[in-house]
Design a protein around this nucleic acid. Structure first.
Lengths: 242, 242
DNA sequence: GCTTGACCTTGACGCTACGTCAGGGTTGGA
DNA sequence: TCCAACCCTGACGTAGCGTCAAGGTCAAGC
């Protein structure tokens, strides 16, 4: 007669594993001796070894019992089924590895290379890290909410760096984030931006749902709360006038 | 401001997922409105999307927070580390698939082909299913406890089928399992087996720890309890005489 | 004003296969 | 008699949420 430790050693598992199999009903509870110790016979050792043979092959515990008593045809079907499940998991993990490989740097985080290049160009132009992060977050939101408009938006943005006036405004925006909303410089910036919008009205393709983009910026800066409000108001007036 | 459902939809996850991230501290709890509802700003949406980008790539949740704030060098190191962990899992599952493929039939369960062939030959000779199962279990035990002696044991067993007397005894053993221990046929069988043992004493390489094998048989048959006892007694006397 | 359906809240169990204490009794050899 | 090594039950932890349960809130239609 074997104790639980001897049985476990025979099958190459831990004592906890044997008790777990009792708990889930995979291996029947044996008789107890006078002190309450479990006592196993040789058949239990054989049963446990057969269970481990399947478990070591990745068969879920819940299916092992049925498999041990299955006819060859059922057995083969179940094995095929389990093999397919294993393959699915492997495919999933392989996909994870592919994606992990794309995560070259923390900032990139699967943003297109052109966007990362644009962000770096912003840094070269003297933009603050805060502005770069804000811009990055806008791109992240856009990719999640409106991925179809990404290619055009990227082209527009890249082209904008070739226009000195746009670049100048961009840097002014960066500076203005910390201004008081009623700083007179804010009013001058609004005028400049309004003029710029009129000049570039042809390609004013708004995102589908601009609310989140706006709030992302507004959350960062009270001045920009006012700037966006005033600009929206003026644009509305223009449309009404027409 | 977004409700939890809107936030979840924005990032393509379930509400439960967002709450889970709050619970583990991955995403900070936002302000509540008058009725106790969570209210999120756009930054929360960006944060959640960044979290999911990593999670979708198989990064464990516990490591995501550190990764989001990591410098490029740390980030690259962590990514390499996580990639290696994924590869280990893939290798493990691949090994499972290899083993699963070996489980051609329930009876085989990774017993060597020669053993399965022997079991089938036993059936052909007229052995009962019970005897076949008993023999199979002995092989299973031997493979677990004393795999080194398997090849020789298999050769011996295979050869034994070519000896008519051994085969006759084997079938007699099968019959005897259900006999009463004091049936006179048991005594004649003991004499026959004793004579056989004497004739084959040269290759009596006992297994290292025969206890489990004996008990496997004894558990099945009271008659065999007596047979093994008597045979062991006689063998001991012979050794003493020498 | 009332109903109804969709949405929100917290709390808690379930899943997989055990690992790992905690707290306490049993055995066997020195 | 002591001590190490073993046994017992009970319960929490793991990873990442899914899925009730039981109840409050909101917005729209009647």
């Amino acid at each position: 007669m074997l104790t639980i430790g001897q049985l476990a050693a025979t099958a190459g598992v831990t004592v906890r594993t044997v008790r777990h199999y009792h708990h889930v009903g995979l291996l029947p509870e044996p008789e107890r001796d006078a002190s309450g110790y479990r006592r196993y016979n040789a058949q239990a050792a054989v049963d446990l070894i057969r269970i481990r043979t399947l478990a070591d092959a990745g068969v879920p515990l819940a299916r092992i019992d049925a498999l041990l008593h299955a006819q060859p045809a059922e057995f083969a079907a179940a094995v095929t089924d389990i093999d397919a499940a294993l393959q699915r998991k492997i495919d999933q993990l392989t996909e994870h590895r592919r994606r992990i490989a794309d995560l070259a740097s923390g900032e990139a985080l699967v943003l297109p290379h052109e966007v990362v290049a644009n962000l770096n160009r912003m840094r070269d132009l003297g933009a603050s890290e805060r502005m770069v992060r804000l811009e990055r977050d806008v791109w992240i939101l856009m990719q999640a909410l409106d991925p179809d408009s990404m290619p055009q938006a990227i082209r527009d943005k890249t082209a904008s760096f070739d226009d000195p006036e746009t670049t100048r405004l961009f840097l002014a925006i960066d500076q203005s984030l910390d201004w008081d909303p009623h700083d007179p410089r804010v009013d001058r910036l609004i005028d400049d931006l309004d003029a710029w919008e009129i000049a570039h009205e042809r390609d004013s393709s708004q995102p589908e749902n601009p609310t989140l983009f706006f709030s992302l910026i507004v959350e960062e800066s009270p001045a920009w709360q006012r700037i966006l409000d005033v600009l929206a108001h003026r644009a509305k007036q223009r449309r009404t006038a027409v």
